[in-house]
Design a protein around this nucleic acid. Structure first.
Length: 265
DNA sequence: ATGGTGGAGCATCCA
């Protein structure tokens, strides 16, 4: 079973490139972030035509997440439990394939938090604290749990092209990394860091200042897997080509994030 | 030091 995550930076502005990727990558499950539309504007039929069950937690203009699955979907929740969030940033459900054990999949769009310090950064830390509590309760179920999405966290210096220049950024400052580490230390594994055996890679390149051409990237999209999920991990990857403006549909600009995925037994 | 790009949706905000 292939599970993917992609911050698409507007589902509707990006749709031809997104559908091309779905037709090639054929994920069983995919969570999307920054769909930037209300539920009614989500192109549901394009995905239903491809065999997906579609669950959307939309929002006008900003944020918005979705969960797509070729397998049956149960117990969908929207928003991190116990956290009164004014934005649509989290969707979670149980996926039950015919040929594999169920997986609880969470798709998240963690707040950016800049500028830091400040109220936006306080919101990021509060979000992470609530998410940590929820991640802990999920571990207590002893089910296979996969928490994936745009974490807006650079976990270690290898995840940024200029660690010194980013030291005070909300994505990399020590308090952010510590909060992320607390979640990992509950008992989750950073699955893509594992499959890459610590070899650096990026999942995001800014639109500005020629970041793609200079390979000035960030590693901010992650898969956190519970022990029961990690034991079933067979491979993981990052579809970097989707970020290249010269590859694929030239009429549509790429997202600044690339799809990330894992294969599970 | 600033602005550099891109999306939503109409002046800016967000990333």
């Amino acid at each position: 079973m292939k599970i993917a995550s992609w911050n698409v930076n507007s589902i509707n502005a990006r749709l031809p490139r997104i559908l091309d990727w779905f037709d090639a990558a054929k994920p069983d499950v995919c969570v999307l972030q920054e769909i930037k539309c209300v539920d009614e504007k989500f192109p549901v039929s394009d995905f239903e035509d491809r065999g997906y069950n579609v669950h959307v937690y939309g929002q006008k203009t900003y944020n918005g997440v979705a969960l797509l699955s070729k397998h049956p979907v149960e117990d969908v929740i929207r928003g991190v439990p116990g956290f009164d969030d004014e934005f649509s940033r989290y969707i979670e459900a149980t996926i039950t394939p015919d040929d594999a054990q169920p997986v609880r999949v969470g798709g998240l769009y963690l707040p950016n938090g800049n500028p830091a310090p400040g109220p936006k950064y306080d919101y990021k830390l509060a979000w992470m604290e609530a998410f940590e509590a929820h991640a802990r309760s999920l571990l207590n179920t002893e089910e296979a749990v996969v928490l994936t999405g745009d974490y807006n966290v650079i976990p270690e210096p290898e995840g940024v092209y200029d660690p010194r220049g980013w030291a005070d950024d909300a994505l990399f400052r020590l308090e952010t990394r510590t909060a992320f580490r607390r979640i990992l230390n509950l008992g989750y594994t950073d699955a893509l860091w594992h499959t890459h055996q610590g070899q650096p890679f990026y999942t995001f390149w800014d639109y500005q200042a020629g970041a793609w051409n200079k390979n000035n990237g960030l590693r901010i999209d992650h898969f956190l897997m519970s022990p029961q999920a990690f034991d079933r991990l067979s491979s993981g990857g990052v579809d970097k080509d989707t970020r290249d403006p010269s590859i694929g549909n030239g009429d549509v600009k790429p997202s600044d994030h690339v799809p990330v995925w894992v294969e599970m037994e």
